[in-house]
Amino acid sequence: MTASRPAPRIRPDTRARRQHLLMLAPYLVGLVGLMLLPALVTLALAFTEYDLLRPPTWVGLDNLTALVDDPIFRVALLNSLVFAVVAVPLRVLVALGLALLLHRRAPGVGTARTATLLPTAVPEIAYGLLWLWLFNPLYGPINQLLRLGGEHGLTVLGRTPPPWLTDPTSARAGIILMSLFTMGETFVVLLAARRALPRDVYEMAALEDATGWDVFRRITLPLMAPVLALLAVRDAIASLHFTFVPAFVVTDGGPPPYATTYLSLFVYQTGFEYLRYGYAAAATLVMMLLTVAALLVQWRLIRRYRRFYQV
């Protein structure tokens, strides 16, 4: 409702406001202390040379210009972007598919929902180690399965199964595959979004004898589009981070040269392994800029859809 009723001229309840502030205080302290300050410090360090061991020295834009010329950084940036472009839509699609499949009450649906959520609940390192085993090119269950029915260690189609962690393309695909199973949060949001859609709209479509595809294309998809878009943007931002553990634990940034070195791993390696903290901070700055860009997209989407659905 945007009807402009004259706002009641009541003095704001200062006590209530103070209480709100008090209740927010722990969160604000945490936010400022744990997120904002480190972020600001990192921003500042991006313009310094700092090795964690000696005091930082101001170098201006040197780090950023060096990043532009750094082939490893460029590869890492490209890897991150490609990951986001491929994995994020896939993750959202998988989550959407499962949400549409599992939004109704039916026998087994509860179990299926839990199963969908489970990988997201596994600690990341353990999840990575699990996949290290799954991806084992000779003894891993995935390739054992692919070899079923084939002879001489080949698949049924007579091809060698993917050498998951030693071939750059397979390794990238592997990391994406890993990430597909941790879309639990997206799934939950989409499940809730789907269940919030009005039932009578679907009954209307049934009366018009709309096919499942028509219903999906003309109703479900457009109605869920705002949520999907927001989730995709959120996932894209998160993908800058959740590529870290798989790359760190499973592929160690390889196979060479840097096939799965994503921005997050690049930052970790340069910062903590090579002690180029200032340089790593500059790379972090680039990550932040990407995040801000994504947030702007998100903000525009919200505004656009709010105009669409204003009641």
């Binding site: 084992n136 090119p137 050498p163 030693t166 196979p255």
Partner: peptide, 8 residues
């Protein structure tokens, strides 16, 4: 081979 090293 690299796959064998990766496997074991």
């Amino acid at each position: 081979s690299d796959a064998e090293v990766e496997a074991e």
